[in-house]
């Protein structure tokens, strides 16, 4: 339960944080879609934008939740769960930034989630390891 709450907060904070950062940067760049219009001064302006700071705070919250979960859970369990944030990110970008997301892009996002789950798949999940420890406590090893 502790893990579920911490990881849900992490996913939401990460996704909402990205939307906030995106909104902030687009306000600063005037909505230009050309990378040539970008200048480093915009990063200084970003440091004065409340939206950017809100995004940073949300990402720090994500970061703390992620780190804290790693002190008891395995990376190979936490990473696939956090990968769901790819879908949440695209959903929020569509809802709140009005980005038109093509079917190809949705399909790509789903494939990425599946891929991340497979990448981090491993023999022992956090829960398996607990079961393993209990099992070996009741039956000491021969070595």
């Amino acid at each position: 339960m502790k893990t579920a709450i911490v990881l849900t907060v992490a996913i939401l904070a990460q996704s909402i944080g990205n939307v906030t950062l995106s909104k902030g940067m687009k306000l600063i760049s005037g909505g230009s879609t050309d990378s040539a219009d970008f200048s480093l001064i915009m990063l200084l302006q970003a440091m004065q934008s409340p939206l950017i700071w809100m995004g940073i705070l949300l990402l720090i919250l994500f970061f703390v939740m992620f780190m804290v979960s790693l002190t008891w859970a395995d990376l190979s369990f936490v990473v696939p769960v956090i990968s769901l944030s790819y879908i949440v990110n695209v959903v929020l970008a569509h809802q709140f930034l009005g980005e038109s997301v093509s079917e190809t892009r949705w399909a790509g996002t789903l494939l990425i989630c599946l891929g991340v789950i497979l990448v981090s798949r491993s023999g022992h999940s956090t829960r398996d390891k607990d079961a393993y420890a209990v099992h070996h406590e009741t039956r000491p090893s021969q070595t």
Binding site: N18, S32, M42, V116
Partner: peptide, 17 residues
């Protein structure tokens, strides 16, 4: 955040995967 200034978030977030 620099890339977010010009690119779509629904592109850049999955691309960084």
């Amino acid at each position: 955040i620099s890339v977010l200034a010009w690119a779509e978030m629904s592109f850049i977030v999955p691309a960084t995967s």
